[in-house]
Amino acid sequence: MFFDRLPAVEAAEVPSDGFLLDVREPEEWAAGHAEQAVHVPMGEVVARIDELPRDRRVHVVCRSGGRSAQVAQYLIAQGYDAVNVDGGMHAWQAANRPMVAADGSPEAFVL
């Protein structure tokens, strides 16, 4: 299976200045997301691919890692340097990485 060979990083290893692509649905994003993340729901990635940088690594995250693995696989096939964030936002929250809610408040959680 390709996902077994898919490049992945732990949430704690994502650089604070790294490009983080959150592919969750809008209600998941609104509940809590990484402050520096860029939100492009999975279903919009193909149409919005030009918004993603080709000159730096794209760290792809979702709730638990499944959707982001699919998006990372797609981006790699398109020539991007992409990696899956293992464990998704659940792992991000467990690693005590900073999160905010849609209104910018620090009271964020993973849906």
Rank of each mutant, 00 (worst) to 15 (best):
E44C: 12
M42F: 09
L6A: 08
G65T: 06
D4R: 14
A82N: 01
R24D: 02
H39G: 13
E10F: 03
R48Q: 12
G104Y: 11
V100G: 00
A8E: 14
G88D: 01
P7D: 09
E35R: 14
A94R: 12
V23Y: 05
D4S: 04
V45Q: 01
A91E: 10
R63I: 05
W92F: 01
R97P: 08
E28Y: 01
A31Y: 04
A30G: 12
D103R: 13
D22A: 09
G88L: 01
S64G: 14
E25D: 07
A91F: 10
V58L: 09
E10I: 02
D81P: 08
E25P: 00
G104H: 10
R54H: 12
R63D: 03
E28W: 01
A34F: 00
D86K: 15
P106I: 07
L21F: 09
H59G: 00
H39I: 13
E44P: 02
V100I: 14
G79N: 11
G65L: 07
D81V: 09
Q78C: 09
S64Y: 04
P53E: 12
A47E: 15
F19G: 02
I76N: 12
R56K: 15
P26H: 07
V85E: 00
L6V: 13
A77I: 00
E28M: 08
W29S: 08
N96P: 07
L111G: 14
L111V: 13
P41G: 11
R48D: 05
V85N: 00
V45F: 03
S64Q: 11
Q70D: 10
A82V: 05
M89H: 06
G32M: 07
R56N: 06
G79C: 13
D50S: 12
D103E: 14
P98R: 04
E27Y: 15
V40M: 07
E25A: 06
A47I: 03
E25M: 08
W29T: 11
F3R: 05
E13C: 04
R97S: 05
P26F: 12
V58D: 07
D55A: 03
M89T: 05
L6E: 08
V40C: 12
L75R: 08
E13A: 15
S68L: 07
W29F: 12
A11L: 02
V83T: 10
M99L: 15
